[in-house]
Nucleic acid binder design. Sequence first.
RNA 1: GGCGAUAUCGUCUAACGGUUAGGACGGAGCCCUCUCAAGGCUCAAAUCCGGGUUCGAUUCCCGGUAUCGCUACCA
Length: 500
Amino acid sequence: MDLFQIAKGAALRMAADSKPRVRFAPSPTGYLHVGGARTALFNWLFARHEGGTFILRVEDTDVERNKPELVDGILDGLRWLGVQWDEGPYFQSQRMDLYRAAAERLVASGSAFACYCKAIQYAGADAVVEGEEGAEKAARTPPCPCRDMAPAERQEKERQGLPRAIRFATPRTGVTRFEDAVFGPREVQNAEIEDFVLLRSSGVPTYQLGAVVDDIDMRITHIIRGADHLSNTPKQALLYAALGAPAPIFAHVPLILGADRTRLSKRHGATSVGSYSEEGFLPEAFRNFLALLGWSTGSDEEFLRTSELIARFTLSGISRTNAIFDRPKLEWFNSQYLQKLPLEELLPYVKAELQRAGLWRDAWDAAEREWFAHTVDLLRPRTRLLPDFATWARAFFSDDFDYDAEARAKFWKDHKLPDLLGKLAAALDALADWNHDACDHALRALAEAEGVKAGLLINATRVAIVGRAVAPPLFETMVVLGKDRVVSRLRRALPHVAAP
RNA sequence: GGCGAUAUCGUCUAACGGUUAGGACGGAGCCCUCUCAAGGCUCAAAUCCGGGUUCGAUUCCCGGUAUCGCUACCA
């Protein structure tokens, strides 16, 4: 290996090192909600676009709220979403020594101090609002006096073995700056920043410490996260400096709100990713919708498959305003994907749905694969969610279906119908060839002979053979169902038509 | 209360000093038609308010207002 080769290798290594490293860091205090899902998606899109690395880290330091059993649900949600992580999942609960060591280092260097105050319970957001004029400032947390404690007193507290938290010694003056790819360069007065806790008296790190120590350790280059963290970022910028590490680029993503403009929560209906999976949304449609919530390409195109999202994703396209979760638009995206996806990509989803409904037949994957594909293709313009295939379109996959009440009321009114449908069954039964035009001709000939409009027969027949008023065009439906089924279903329907 | 961010049709958004302020969802209507969708066409619908700067502000600055966030030994 000559010098050139060595230099080239070094250059390549540097190039590899300069690739972005990003992370998604959920805490297992709840399911994966749409806000978190979008944050994960943005991180993933950014990593894929840049050829970087996407890391998954579980921030499970809050022993009180943490529910380990929720981790699997979050991972499942991410898998369904299709955002594969390249490293991890790492668990903060398994890295405690790292945070404690960092806290001790900060105390040793004078950037942090031990605090012996009693922990103040969070009073809730309403606590401040409640105060009448005059008393309104009472709820502010007082500054911790331990920072300026005399050495003798401190020794005494230590000797007594009092529980101690570690707080950051925020500079009293000056400003702290950081760079945000979405909100631009930011600066805050240090005087506005309290001496925040780094290590709880239990020895467990807070979010601020854990996140920064891990982001340094994991060599994170871009922190893409919810804008609810924007106000706290100066604290972390301070921590980076105190820990002697360069700060990463931040990119704060605006929040997703409910229809009432408040933070998305349970009372807004489905907010967990899992519920959208269960409802029968296609992951790619969900990704497309989510990606466009708070990010745009700058163009008018909206139907963007994942490869296109990756190709176009940039941090500069991220919006600065909160977005409201718009369910109708999500459904529109889903119906678009149901219609536009290459058929071969759609079939496995329909298969899974039919299996779930107990309607699946293995032949549809083998000898009758052609039939299955054609039927799905016929059905899909009228579907909005995956379960539509098993519910609304049930009669296409099973002989066990019933007649929709509204459809009967609307299309089985005419008293001539029992007679007409009986004759139609006979006419169809006599057909030598079974195809669209043959069915068409047979039905229209009968209509003409009987002096009724073809529509009367068509609509009544549709209800008889698929049980619903809403279905694909009749003759295509007949072809798909086949002669035997159509004729027998017509005859089976006769008594129901006679007695509506 | 303090600090901060944000502000374009109902919703998601485009515009990066000059446009009849564009697109999409949703809504209304028409076409197509055997139902319902899909598709095509059309319509209604927005620059929070007030001051500046400028020949010219959706766009830049200031103030107000509203909303959201942070202000926890939650993340």
